[in-house]
Simulated assay, not measured.
Amino acid sequence: MAHNPPNEIVSAFTEEQASRLTGITVNQLRYWDKTRLFCPQFAATDRRAPFSRVYSFQDIAALRVLNVLTKQYSVSVQHIREVAKRLCSMDNGAWARTTLYVLKRKVNFVDPADGKQKEIVSGQYAIGIPLEKVVSDTKRDVQQMSERSSSMIGTVETHRHVVSNSPVIAGTRVPVKAIKSFADAGYTVEQIRSEYPTLTREDIEAAISYKSKNKAA
């Protein structure tokens, strides 16, 4: 399945992140992959391996469209498969200009070249889904997901899908052990921050004290 990102964002998303952004359960994503209805852009041959399914930004945008079509408009699985192929083959310009129209559970694309609706019966009402709006909404939600909440500042967390369950600064992928290695080498908090400018003083201090507590234990 060809993929051409509809924007300048270069991102990769785990199954859990894809589920959060699209509203599709992880089990459903895996089923769609297994049945080849929709396969992630970055997929390992062995799907049992960690991070064997990684979704691109376009994957997320396309999945959001498919989720709306199946849940709100009851579009058939067979037709969803056709729509998925079409979405994943479109380039940047087509995503920016194309609007989908749903009529009687059938999805029709407006041809970006001539602006004409394909397979729409004249005079019948069709519901429009501008893909440009889907992309902008997806960008917004990705940005919100990537932003750290105030409750994460100065805290440490572990997650089985982040750095192999090693302790990291909450809301980031920065390992606590990396911060500790700088501290052990004599770096001050401010010097460590210069190495990790996205972290706060509280983050650095939390990482150092977290390791100290574990040693004391």
Rank of each mutant, 00 (worst) to 15 (best):
M1A: 08
I204P: 02
R140E: 01
T200E: 04
P197V: 08
W95L: 01
Y31P: 00
S56W: 06
T25L: 11
V68D: 01
R105Y: 08
N92A: 05
N92F: 14
V142P: 00
I9H: 05
S181L: 10
R140N: 03
A43G: 06
R30T: 01
I24S: 04
S122H: 14
E16L: 08
G123V: 10
F57I: 01
V121G: 00
P40E: 03
S136F: 06
R20E: 13
C88Y: 08
A62M: 07
R201C: 02
E132C: 12
R86A: 11
Y210M: 03
S122I: 13
G154K: 14
I80Q: 08
L37Y: 07
N7H: 11
T158K: 15
S136P: 00
L66A: 03
L131M: 13
A113V: 13
T99D: 05
K34E: 01
T45W: 06
T200Y: 10
C88N: 15
L69R: 08
S194R: 14
R47L: 04
L63N: 03
I24A: 04
R86D: 04
E157P: 01
S181G: 02
A178D: 13
N7F: 02
T45K: 15
V174P: 05
D46K: 11
T138D: 00
V10D: 01
I204C: 04
T198E: 10
D111N: 15
V121K: 15
K213C: 02
Y31L: 08
K213T: 10
Q144W: 09
V110S: 05
L21I: 09
S194N: 09
Q117A: 11
V107Y: 06
K34P: 06
V65A: 08
I60H: 06
A43K: 15
V102G: 05
E195S: 12
P40R: 10
I60S: 04
A84Y: 11
G115Q: 07
K116R: 13
N108I: 12
D46Y: 07
S19F: 12
G171N: 12
I120N: 02
R64I: 03
V189Y: 05
I80F: 08
Q72L: 12
N165R: 15
I60N: 09
V10E: 01
A49V: 11
R48T: 14
S194M: 10
E8K: 15
T22W: 07
N7T: 10
P112L: 11
T188I: 07
E202R: 15
V107K: 11
I24D: 02
N108D: 02
D114E: 01
C39I: 14
P5D: 04
D33G: 01
H159I: 00
G115F: 14
I60Y: 06
D203M: 12
S164C: 08
L63A: 00
T138E: 00
S151K: 15
D137E: 15
T70G: 03
S149C: 09
Y210K: 04
S212I: 11
K211S: 12
K211T: 09
P112G: 06
I80H: 03
Q17F: 03
V168D: 05
M90T: 04
W95I: 03
R47F: 01
G186C: 10
A216N: 15
M152E: 14
A96E: 06
